[in-house]
Design a protein around this nucleic acid. Structure first.
Lengths: 366, 366
DNA sequence: CTGAAAGCGCTTACAG
DNA sequence: CTGAAAGCGCTTACAG
C-alpha cells in the first residue's frame, strides 16, 4: 500500500502553484482585466477575444480563487451552519434543507459540529467561523435558555449585523424581541396540543410525558401543548406524570424501565418527547411484557424515519424539518428584498401523522 | 412578526464595514504589522505593546479576515466534504468523523450535498469547491465505477495534486493504481464473508442476497464475500438468489414483498445489502405473516441505529463509520509527514454484531 | 472593446 | 522590538 511517489525529502512539502488569472491572460495574449471580464460575463468583450480567453482558461485548468475574489467583492458567498449532532435525524434533516438551499442560492456551506450544551465552546466555534466572513451564521436546534445565553446570542446577532452578516436561528426562538436575527421555528406547541388531544379523544386521560430536557426551548412548547390540551379537556395536569431527562433512545428506555419497575403504571398512554425517546419507551414496554398499543399507547414527536421501523409504527407529530432549513436560508439571504424584509420570523406548522401505536381505550382488549 | 426596523429604502443593503487590522493598529497606536504579529504570536513583541494591541482588538471586536490571510498564507485552512445524502445513517456518521477531525486539525469544513449518481453534477460541484482552495476534497461513499468515472476522478486527483491539494476517497476504492489520492476503505468483503459464514454455520445454506446497486463499489465486495463464504462452505452460489436494486428501506420492502408473492421462499435466510434494506425486508416478512427469526433469518450490514429499533434487533456487520472519516482527514492532512507518507491507503476492519435476527435452522420451531 | 492601476485585508521578508 | 513596503489574486472604476 501507499505506492505513491513523493518528490521531496522527508517532511517537506512539494512546491506547487495554482494557475492564476495572469497565467490565463498571458496565454491568451490579453490583460488580466479582460480575462476577469470574460469569465464573469460582466462587460461586453469581442467574440474572438472571448473564445481565446476561454480556451486558455480551459487548457490551463483555471479555477478562480474565491478568497481573492471575495476580498474585493465584499461578499464571501459562504454560509456557516452549526449543528451539534449531525447523526440525529431531526438535525440532519434540517441540515439537508439548509445545505441544499445554500447551494441553490449559489453559496457555499460551511459546517461545524460543536459540542452540545457548551455555550462557551459554541461561541468559540462561532468566532472561528466569523473569520470566514460568512454571509450568515445558522444555529440549529433548541437550547436551554439562560439570561447569560440570551445576552450573548443577542450580542452576537448585533456584531454580525454590524458587519453586514446575519444570525439565523433554526428551530430556536429569538433571545430578545429586538434581536437582529432571522428566526425560523415550528409550532411545537400546536403539535403537542393536537397529539395530546388525539390521545384524549381516544379515551386516554392519564398520559405520561417522558423525555426532553426540562426548560429547553424544544421541550417547553411540547409540554405547554400537552398541558393546554389536558386543561381544554377539563383535566388537571398531574406533575407526577412528567418525567424529564433527555430526548434519546437510551433515556426513553431507562426511564420507562425505571417507572415500570416502581409499580403498576397509573397511565394508559405515553407521550415521548421525540421519536427517539419513543423508540426507547417501546423497547422498555416490550421488555416488560406490555403490548403497544393494546396495553399502553405511545406517541412520539418529529416524524423521523425511526417511526416507521418501530413495532408498532409510531403515531407522531410531523415537523417540516427540511423546510425549516430551506426557509431559514431564503429569509436570511433575501432579507433586504421587499418581500422578505418584514418576514424575518417564520413559524412553520406541524401536524399529526397517525400510525399504529395508539388504540382507543374503550376498545381495550382484556 | 418581523418587527425588525431596516434603515434603508427598499431593496438597498445597508452599508457596513468590518473592523480591520488597520483599525486595531490605529487604536493601539502601532503598525498593522505589529498587530498581526501580536495576534499570531509569531515574533516577539514587548509585553506592553502586546496588551495595548489585545485590548484594542477586543474593544473593536476584531476578527481576522480568513480570506485575506489565506491569500498570502497559500493555505486556506479549508477542507471540502461531498456527501450525497446526509440523512443516511451510514453517510452522516462518516461525515461526523470527518467534520470532527477537520476541526481537531484546526481547519474549517465545507459541506456539499450533490445529487447522487450524477457524475457531471458531482464534478461541477467539485469545480465550485475548488474555487475555495481547499486543502483536501473528500468524496464519501461508493459509486458505480465506469471507465469514464475512473478517468475523470483520476484526472481530478492529478489536478488537485498539482495545486498542492488532495483528493480523498472515503469508503470508495482508488480509481487507478497510481492515482494520487488518500483512500480509506473498510473491509466489506471480510464482513460479508463473516456474516455469511455465521448464517451457514447456523444451518442456512439457501441465503437470499437482497439489495444494493449491481456493480457499485459498495455492493461488489459484499457480494464477493457472500459468494466466497458459500464456496468455502462447499456450496455453489445460486445466481437466482441475488436480487439487486438499491439499498433503501423501500426497495427492501417492495422487493421482498414481490418475492414472497411469487411463491414459497426457497431460502431460509436473507442477507440484506444494508440495515436500511433489512428493515424493509423485516417489514415485508411481517406483513406476509412470517416470523423472524423463527421462520426466516435476516442479517443487515453497517450496524446503524435502525438495527436496534427493528423487531427483532438486527444481526449485522459493524463498519467503523466515524473512524473512516477521522482517519481519512488525518492521513490526508499529514501526508507529507514521514509517518503518513507511505500510508495513504487504509482499509479498516469490520466485524459481526450478533443480535436477535438469526436462529439456527436445526432448532427451527414447527 | 481593452488595458494600466488601484485596492480589498492580510503576512512577512527587509530594514532599522 | 517595530515599521514601511511589497505582494498574495482578484475586480472595477478610470482612461483611452
Amino acid at each position: 500500500m501507499g505506492a505513491r511517489v513523493t518528490r521531496k525529502p522527508a517532511d517537506e512539502q512539494p512546491v506547487r502553484r495554482r494557475t492564476t488569472l495572469h497565467d490565463v491572460a498571458a496565454r491568451a495574449g490579453v490583460s488580466a482585466a479582460t480575462v476577469s471580464r470574460v469569465l464573469n460575463g460582466t462587460y461586453r468583450v469581442s467574440a474572438e477575444t472571448q473564445s481565446r480567453v476561454r480556451r486558455a482558461a480551459e487548457e490551463l485548468d483555471y479555477v478562480v480563487n474565491a478568497q481573492a475574489r471575495s476580498l474585493v467583492a465584499s461578499s464571501s458567498g459562504l454560509v456557516a451552519v452549526l449543528v451539534t449532532d449531525i447523526t440525529a435525524p431531526f438535525y440532519n434533516r434540517i441540515a439537508k434543507g439548509l445545505a441544499e438551499q445554500v447551494t441553490a442560492e449559489g453559496r457555499v456551506c460551511i459546517l461545524s459540529t460543536p459540542q452540545s450544551g457548551d455555550l462557551d465552546g459554541e461561541l468559540a466555534t462561532i468566532t472561528t467561523l466569523r473569520q470566514q466572513s460568512p454571509e450568515a451564521i445558522v444555529l440549529v436546534g433548541g437550547v436551554h435558555e439562560s439570561p447569560d445565553y440570551r445576552k450573548r446570542i443577542d450580542g452576537l446577532a448585533h456584531s454580525l449585523d454590524a458587519e453586514g452578516s446575519r444570525l439565523v436561528l433554526c428551530g430556536r426562538p429569538s433571545p430578545t424581541k429586538d434581536t437582529p436575527a432571522t428566526v425560523v421555528e415550528y409550532d411545537g406547541e400546536a403539535g403537542a396540543f393536537a397529539i395530546t388531544s388525539h390521545l384524549l379523544s381516544a379515551g386516554h386521560e392519564r398520559i405520561l410525558f417522558l423525555g426532553g430536557g426540562a426548560g429547553s426551548t424544544t421541550t417547553n412548547p411540547r409540554v405547554r401543548g400537552y398541558r393546554r390540551a389536558l386543561e381544554a379537556y377539563g383535566t388537571t395536569p398531574d406533575p407526577a406524570l412528567i418525567a424529564h431527562g433527555s430526548s434519546t433512545r437510551v433515556f426513553g428506555y431507562e426511564e420507562m424501565t425505571r417507572i415500570l419497575a416502581s409499580g403498576t403504571p397509573d397511565f394508559t398512554a405515553v407521550f415521548a418527547s421525540d421519536d427517539l425517546a419513543a423508540s426507547g419507551v417501546l423497547a422498555a414496554l416490550r421488555g416488560h411484557g406490555l403490548r403497544v398499543p393494546d396495553d399502553i399507547s405511545v406517541v412520539g414527536f418529529d416524524d423521523t424515519p425511526v417511526a416507521l421501523d418501530t413495532v408498532p409504527s409510531l403515531t407522531t407529530v410531523h415537523v417540516p424539518m427540511e423546510e425549516i432549513g430551506r426557509t431559514a436560508i431564503q429569509l436570511a439571504l433575501h432579507r433586504h428584498e421587499a418581500d422578505f424584509r418584514n418576514a424575518q420570523h417564520a413559524v412553520l406548522g406541524t401536524h399529526i401523522t397517525v400510525r399504529d401505536s395508539v388504540r382507543p381505550l374503550v376498545h381495550k382488549r382484556t
